[in-house]
Design a protein around this nucleic acid. Sequence first.
DNA 1: CGATTGCCGACTGTCGACAGTTTTACCAAG
DNA 2: CTTGGTAAAACTGTCGACAGTCGGCAATCG
Lengths: 236, 236
Amino acid sequence: MASPTAAPRAFIQQQNLVEQVADYLTQAIIQQHFLPGERLSEVQLSRDLGVSRAPVREAARLLESRGLLISKPRRGFFVRALNAVELEDVFDLRLCLERHGIERLAERYTADAQRALKQQVEVLCEAAAGNDGTRRIEEDLQFHRLMLHYAGNERLLRAFDDLSHELRLCITLITKTHEAPDTIATSHFKLLDALDSGNPAACREAIDYHIGVARDFVVKGVGETGDSDDEDVLPR
Amino acid sequence: MASPTAAPRAFIQQQNLVEQVADYLTQAIIQQHFLPGERLSEVQLSRDLGVSRAPVREAARLLESRGLLISKPRRGFFVRALNAVELEDVFDLRLCLERHGIERLAERYTADAQRALKQQVEVLCEAAAGNDGTRRIEEDLQFHRLMLHYAGNERLLRAFDDLSHELRLCITLITKTHEAPDTIATSHFKLLDALDSGNPAACREAIDYHIGVARDFVVKGVGETGDSDDEDVLPR
DNA sequence: CGATTGCCGACTGTCGACAGTTTTACCAAG
DNA sequence: CTTGGTAAAACTGTCGACAGTCGGCAATCG
């Protein structure tokens, strides 16, 4: 249970409470103010946030659909706990989506897309040079989001957005080490080069390598925190 | 491995209004009792179903996350209307997921999986011979769901389940013609053959062809109902 | 001493109600 | 006939409350 006095975000005042509560919960989960497997009390949350239970429930349903919470009937909502297998699955699905995305993008690579992606890599490099780990992750995700955006399939992009919430969870919760800034830079420039070449096979190879590296970083973290493949902390 | 079937029908469970309302809405949308773009009134629905607005709202949020409804703040929920582009996107994402799934499955094709898939094709053929169009679609989807199930990536399966709701929408709303039973049979047996061969390229080719045919059936339907690519019926 | 049963507290699922906003209906002016 | 504005109606977002249910604890029984 969260400490009663710990109110990481200011009070909620404006409308659209559902989204605000959802954002608050998302941040709280990613920043580990709620531990994996922990049970969330609706009344407690509504008291802490100063809203009624209705928006809290709706926000929780939203987070459930995003894979951050799990609901057990008559038991309430629990923070999603990922085991090693689920972690692999998330990155495998990411690979699936991004492979398809980069190939579609290669078919319709416009100067606009090229410019936007290049600029985003610059931003990412800048972020990687700084100390804000969260921002680095966000800019990284944003680059990949841009790729899928310019791939021209809105539904594919939505699938990636859905997954990205879990991805954030994986990355933030487990990653202990940070990639070196120049590694990040070259890694992403390779993607741009592959796109420039217009060769689908090169694109696929580049994205396979890129995501493989990202996955290894996270999987390495798993080895540190747990030993069993079945360390799912979900209560029965 | 756990049973791949979606929801083991409960015994006495009469509770859980949210799911019941969600099921009702899903059926109503697919069976066109609500037209695409139509606005759903919460009070009307709660009156008709004899429940309060809270479960209706939560069910609507669920349907929104499944892509069957769209919510506009302060405006309410609207039945999702798909234009030609979105339709293409849905089938493109399906291709993305199933390509990945069948390749993963080819890597770990067990006798269990083979048996289950073969049996499901039998069931599908039987259903195709009958007149129940809905059941034919369900058995078809179930076959593909089984493929992704045995592919061994739970998250990939969930992505497919998410998409399948929209897929149902596409198929049921737009398809006017029916594939011949033997076409369906051979089409699916080709997938099994490709899997038996253990050749990833053959699998990819088979699934590409398979989904291409399915998409053409639906896209053909679109040509009948509208001419513009921009026939989105969603209100502003 | 261990297992079972009944009770208690806490919580979820659901409901009806209120306030603010959007939509619609209506009327008047051009 | 169209257009613009105003007011009523309908609807959504939110709230507090009630009842049924679940898990835990203690008293009871074997």
